[in-house]
């Protein structure tokens, strides 16, 4: 239903641009040209981004990573938290239930909050998308800044909350 509405909207746009061409309306023509230049740029990138994400999802399963997180996972726990965070698909709706599972498995709050931070900044599908559209250089700089910040924030939050015997709700 919603998609049908969008198609109608697009049809209307096409008609408007055609009208603009007929009556030689300069701003309408400019809009149309702008659209095609953007469209062409997107066509060059979009299929690749979607194929890369689909390949990633077919080949990587997060269950293997969850296995490594639990009691006494120590420093390597942060590495697995990073990996799990980057493999989380679907954003917060998936990340929170997963955080709860980890909590029950005995992972420390420091690791859980680091994971939640990582799930926000370095999900691989999103990162692939970002790198495709804004360039690899941008993505590398962003990741190199975001990962340490999220790690520190996660550890601090975990430490603070562990003192208060905090529990994650289901």
């Amino acid at each position: 239903m919603k998609r049908k509405l969008l198609w109608y909207f697009l049809l209307l746009c096409v008609l408007l641009v055609l009208l603009a061409y007929c009556f030689n309306n300069s701003s309408g023509i400019a809009s149309g040209k702008q659209f095609f230049s953007i469209f062409w740029n997107m066509v060059k990138i979009l299929p690749c981004a979607f194929i890369l994400i689909a390949l990633f999802e077919k080949w990587c399963h997060r269950d293997t990573v969850v296995k490594h997180l639990g009691d006494n996972c120590g420093i390597t726990g942060y590495f697995w938290a990073l990996l799990l965070g980057s493999m989380t698909i679907g954003g917060l709706f998936v990340a929170f239930p997963l955080a709860y599972t980890l909590h029950r498995k005995g992972a420390s709050l420091k690791i859980i909050f680091s994971f939640l931070g990582f799930a926000g900044v370095c999900r691989i599908p999103m990162t692939l998308f970002e790198a495709s559209f804004l360039g690899v250089q941008f993505t590398i700089i962003r990741l190199a800044t975001a990962i340490p910040i999220m790690l520190i924030a996660g550890i601090l939050m975990g430490k603070f909350l562990e003192k208060r015997n905090y529990c994650i709700e289901e």
Partner: peptide, 13 residues
């Protein structure tokens, strides 16, 4: 695709 094209159309406008 429809959502995407709409965003592009609104943006160009």
């Amino acid at each position: 695709t429809p959502l995407f094209l709409s965003v592009m159309a609104i943006f160009s406008f």
